[in-house]
Design a protein around this nucleic acid. Structure first.
Lengths: 243, 243
DNA sequence: CGGACCATTGACCATAGTCAACCGCCGTGG
DNA sequence: CCACGGCGGTTGACTATGGTCAATGGTCCG
C-alpha cells in the first residue's frame, strides 16, 4: 500500500504543507485495499463506520435518498479524495458512497488516525483542511442549484470536475475520462433526464465543451468558465496550474 | 465576555463531550465583543480574517453573490454558532456573513485557538465536529434544492431552523422569532419572491405552521415533518429533545 | 402627508417536466 | 449466427410549475 501513501500525501500537499515527519507518520497508517464494483456501495447510508475510505483509483459519489425515492448526488470524488472523512467525528453516515465505474480504495482505522492527530497536530490540520474544502464544495453546490440557470449549472459542474481532475494530474490535455451518465447528471443538477440531454446538446453548440461516452472534451476553457461563472477560488488549491 | 464563554461551551456540548479542563481552556480565549447592525456584513466575501466570529445574540446568514448579481444564502446561524470557523484553515472567505436583525458577536484570534488545539486536542476535535456538522447542513441544503419540490423545500427549511433553535433553547413552545423576510427565503430556497409568498400561504393552509411578521408558529410539528420529509439525524445533536 | 419597504394578488409567459416512442450498441442465449 | 432484450441516449408533443411583470395595500417613520 505504498501507492496509497503516495496518493494520499500528494493530495494533502495540494492544499497543505507537510514536513518529512508528517509524511513519515502518514506512512505508518494501516491501509487495507478493497476493490469496489460499478454501482456498488462503498459506505451505506446510516452506517457507523470505524474506518475511513481513501480513494486510490476510479470515481465514487456521495448521495442521499429521500422519502419520495429520489436520489440526490452530493459530490463526486477522484483519486486521493477522502470521501467519508467526516466519519472521524460524526458517528453516523447521513449519506451513502457508491462507486461509479470500478474503484479501488484503502481503508484506514479511525483510532489510528485520531491517535496520529495527537502526536502530530499538523497532520490533523491538513486533514481538517481537507474536510473544510469538502464543505466549500458543498457550498458552491448550493449556489449552483439555488442560483444558476440550467445551462450555467451544468457548465459549472463540468468546470469544477475538470479543474479538480487536472489539479490531481488525472487529465490528458483538454480531455478527461469520467464514468458519469446522463442519469447521474440529472440527480446531481436537480433536473430531469431529458433536460440533461438537451442541455448537453446546448453546451456542445456553444463550442466550448463536449461530454459523451464518458469523455469530457474541453474545447475552450476560458469561454466555458464565462458561461459557467466558474471561479476556482473556493477549491483552495495551492497551485492553480494554468489551463 | 463570560457570557460568550457560556454560550460557546453550551453549544459545543450539544454534540461533544468536554471535561473541566477543556472548558477552562476555552475560557482563557480572548473574546472581543462587537455589535453588528441589521444587514451589515460581519465578514466580507474575499476577506482573509485573522479572527473567528462566535455569534452571541441575534442571527447571521452566510451568502454568496454570483456574476449575474443574484445572491444565494447558504445558511442561517443562531447564538453559539461559529459561522466562519472554516477560516481557521482556509485563508480566504469564499462567501460573506451578514447580520439579519441586530446581532452581537465575539471575535477570537485564530492563533490563540490553534495554539489551544495543540495543548488540548479534544477541544480541537469538538470544534472540528462543529465544522463537520456545518458541512452536513450544507449537504442537506443540496438535497433540499436539488430534490425537493417547493412546498416540501420550504417546510424542510423551517423544520431545520426550528429544530436547531429549540436545541439551543431559543424557542418558546411552538413559537420562534426569526428576523427573516420573504426576500431571504427566495434567495435561500432558489425560488422567486412571489412563489415564496404563495408557498407560505399554502403552508398555512396545511394547518401545520405559519410564518409571518418574523414569527414562526408550529401548529403540528409531526405533520409538518411529514410534509417536509424532515429527519434531524444529520444535525448530529446529542439530545434530540422531544418536540 | 409622503415615501420606503414588505407583503399580496392577478394576468400572462417560459422553462423545464412528463409521457412516450425510437435508435444504436452490446451481450446473451436459442 | 442471429434474434432478443436491456440500457443509455435522443427526439417530439404536450403540460405544468414556477417566473415575470405589474399593480395594490398596509405599516412604519420622517
Amino acid at each position: 500500500m505504498d501507492r496509497a501513501h503516495d496518493i494520499l500525501v500528494r493530495k494533502l500537499k495540494e492544499h497543505s504543507d507537510l514536513d518529512e515527519s508528517d509524511v513519515e507518520a502518514l506512512r505508518s497508517l494501516a491501509k487495507t485495499p478493497r476493490i469496489i464494483g460499478p454501482h456498488e456501495d462503498v459506505v451505506i447510508q446510516g452506517a457507523k463506520p470505524r474506518v475511513s475510505v481513501i480513494l486510490l483509483h476510479g470515481m465514487v459519489a456521495r448521495y442521499k435518498v429521500i422519502a419520495t425515492g429520489r436520489r440526490q448526488y452530493l459530490s463526486f470524488h477522484l483519486a486521493g479524495d477522502w470521501p467519508d472523512a467526516q466519519t472521524l467525528f460524526l458517528e453516523r453516515m447521513d449519506h451513502g458512497v457508491c462507486a461509479l465505474g470500478e474503484a479501488l480504495v484503502a481503508l484506514v482505522p479511525h483510532e489510528e488516525i485520531i491517535a496520529l492527530f495527537k502526536r502530530r497536530p499538523n497532520v490533523g490540520f491538513a486533514i481538517w483542511r481537507e474536510t473544510l474544502i469538502d464543505a466549500a464544495i458543498f457550498r458552491e453546490a448550493v449556489v449552483r442549484l439555488g442560483a444558476r440557470p440550467v445551462l450555467m449549472r451544468m457548465a459549472h459542474f463540468f468546470c469544477e470536475l475538470y479543474y479538480r481532475a487536472r489539479a490531481s494530474g488525472l487529465t490528458k490535455p483538454g480531455i478527461c475520462q469520467l464514468p458519469i451518465h446522463q442519469g447521474h447528471l440529472a440527480e446531481t443538477l436537480g433536473i430531469a433526464l431529458v433536460t440533461v440531454n438537451r442541455t448537453l446538446q446546448a453546451l456542445r453548440r456553444t463550442g466550448t465543451m463536449e461530454f459523451r461516452d464518458e469523455n469530457l472534451a474541453i474545447h475552450d476553457w476560458k469561454a466555458l468558465c464565462e458561461i459557467a461563472d466558474f471561479d476556482p477560488d473556493y477549491l483552495n488549491l495551492k497551485r492553480p496550474g494554468r489551463l
